[in-house]
């Protein structure tokens, strides 16, 4: 399946995996809509990319903004063919140190965000009988890592949300794809960690490769989950 002419909405698209997916999609002549909370930074990034990449600022935790963004995409580009729920955040803190505000914020971005964005595009996909929703999850949903209790909880929650949605829409032609990357060299990590483990970590492009492959397999096939880990070992 080709991505040419497809409408692809990527959240958290300003950097890291989201930006890498956008680059590949843009090179394949898709209409790419990048969202991020920080409008100025987002536009600055989009300006460096090909003309078929469009900046659409949106806070995925805000139901009104998500609804407005979805409407805008429908008006300007048409129905969303592929939604990449990539926006995510974390704090590297022990359970004791994690504040209530941080708990709420991680849940809002990592769980409420994909919930709202998927809800905004799924009815249209069901009507057309096609479409892909990609969840950029994390190995933290499957394995225990230190100082990640809330992040892991949101990501394993996202896995179950994805599994249930997939189950509900099975047979309708819609694919719900979960990608579980291990350590990837993106701004979600502190600079020190990125410098120390740059050789081991996967690049955003490595993960983007898996995202694109899973969206472009034959329409007979649904790649439901891919665990993707740095070959050199966990950090």
């Amino acid at each position: 399946m080709s991505l040419e002419g497809k409408v692809i909405w990527i959240t958290g698209g300003r950097s890291g995996i989201g930006k890498a997916v956008a680059e590949v999609c843009a090179a394949q002549n898709a209409h790419v809509i990048l969202s991020s909370r920080d409008a100025d930074a987002l536009r600055a990034v989009a300006d460096t990319m090909p003309a078929n990449v469009h900046a659409l600022p949106c806070d995925v935790t805000d139901a009104g903004q998500v609804q407005a963004a979805a409407l805008r995409i429908a008006q300007d580009f048409g129905a969303v063919d592929i939604l990449v729920n990539n926006a995510g955040s974390t704090v590297f803190k022990s359970f004791i140190e994690t504040s209530i505000e941080e708990f709420d914020q991680l849940h809002a971005t990592n769980l409420r965000g994909p919930f709202l964005c998927s809800k905004a595009v799924l009815p249209g996909m069901l009507e057309r009988g096609e479409g892909s929703i990609v969840m950029i999850n994390s190995m933290a949903a499957l394995n225990v890592f230190p100082n990640s209790s809330v992040y892991s909880a949101t990501k394993s929650g996202l896995k179950m949300l994805s599994d249930c949605v997939r189950n509900e829409v099975r047979g309708s032609g819609i694919r719900v794809i979960s990608i579980f990357p291990g350590a990837t060299n993106t701004p979600i990590w502190p600079d020190k960690v990125r410098e120390k483990h740059a050789e081991t970590m996967m690049t955003p492009g490595d993960v983007a490769h898996a995202v694109i492959e899973s969206c472009t397999t034959s329409s007979r096939v649904m790649i439901e989950e891919i665990s993707l880990q740095p070959v050199g070992g966990a950090l």
Binding site: D206, A210, S227, P230, V231
Partner: peptide, 8 residues
């Protein structure tokens, strides 16, 4: 660099 350890 990437190891797709499990694919469903």
């Amino acid at each position: 660099r990437a190891l797709p350890s499990e694919i469903d």
